[in-house]
């Protein structure tokens, strides 16, 4: 029974990872850049909810919606100011800029909220579910997180496959120059991608900090890296890959910290990532790259 509860906990954490990983993977697929600042957008979302809900006493749902809007605006602003001027630059230059943005967001949060971690009040007000005579408890956060993630995945998949904007995203990710010739506005498409990714980061911030309520200026960094690992794990650029990678990563992390060692949980997650990439160099769902001579 305890295994089952760990498994559910793992899926719940993994669902959050996959929402964050979606942001990474979509941006990578379209702009071919690693957005290192993505984790810090989550942190900003967390602080927005904290400020509105705990400090100003606003309704949780409105706070979360406000966080999603602010994260979206932040994502688009970052893209416009820092990444757009470097569209044609080497990928390393863009990576360093993303790191600069990450430092920037962390230090702004540090200046505004100080270095003491804040305790985040859960935005989810759902009673825990007790099964099998109280042996198996599923927290309200988990009950909300998992279905919400599934809904997001389904909507996102439909959006990308069916809508015009979604298809222009696929076009840009496959061949930027050909997409331009077909009349796709590349800059607008990339901005929309950043907007969606950052909105998802806003959702992820509400879910993640409700379960793990420790909020500080650096608390977005490690989940960001983990989600990035999840995206690579599933095959970066692939949306189903991000989902599978995220859920697997969450399960591995919770199970290894429960049964092997809490301190080594991160090491095990990273070790499995290396092993997977050794066997399948482009991740679980990644496309095989054909090299042209």
């Amino acid at each position: 029974m305890s295994f089952l509860s760990y498994l559910i906990k793992g899926i719940s954490l993994g669902s959050v990872y996959s929402i964050i990983a979606l942001g990474y993977t979509m941006v990578y697929g379209i702009a071919k850049m690693l957005n290192f600042a993505h984790g810090d957008v989550i942190m900003v979302g967390g602080f927005v909810i904290y400020t509105l809900m705990s400090l100003a006493g606003i309704n949780p749902l409105i706070s979360v919606l406000a966080a999603i809007v602010i994260c979206t605006l932040l994502g688009v602003t970052i893209e416009g100011i820092a990444y757009r001027p470097l569209r044609k630059a080497s990928s390393l230059a863009v990576l360093i800029t993303a790191i600069g943005v990450s430092y920037f967001l962390q230090n702004v949060a540090l200046l505004v909220y100080g270095s003491n971690p804040k305790s985040f009040t859960s935005v989810i007000n759902v009673p825990a579910l007790k099964l099998a005579d109280g042996k198996l408890t599923i927290t309200g956060e988990t009950l909300v997180t998992i279905p919400l993630c599934i809904i997001i995945m389904v909507i996102l998949n439909l959006f990308i496959k069916k809508s015009k904007v979604g298809r222009s995203m696929i076009a840009v990710s496959e061949d930027k120059d050909a997409a331009v010739l077909m009349g796709v506005n590349v800059n607008k498409t990339i901005a929309i991608t950043f907007a969606i990714g950052s909105a998802l980061a806003g959702v992820a911030s509400a879910l993640m900090f409700s379960t793990y309520p420790n909020l500080s200026s650096t608390s977005g960094a490690m989940p960001g890296i983990k989600a990035f690992v999840a995206a690579v794990f599933g095959g970066i650029g692939s949306i189903p890959g991000a989902m599978i990678g995220g859920v697997l990563l969450g399960i591995i992390q919770i199970l290894s910290s429960a049964y092997i060692s809490t301190q080594l949980a991160d090491a095990i997650v990273f070790l499995i990532l290396i092993l997977v990439l050794l066997i399948k160099p482009t991740g679980i769902m990644g496309k095989k790259l054909h090299e042209k001579v």
């Binding site: 820092a82 001027p85 630059a89 230059a93 360093i96 800029t97 600069g100 943005v101 962390q106």
Partner: peptide
């Protein structure tokens, strides 16, 4: 407290000046 903030801004501006 502003020093790492300035460092971050310098980093971004330097990259843009160098590569845009």
């Amino acid at each position: 407290d502003y020093r790492m903030l300035i460092y971050a801004i310098v980093l971004i501006i330097m990259m843009i000046l160098n590569w845009n």
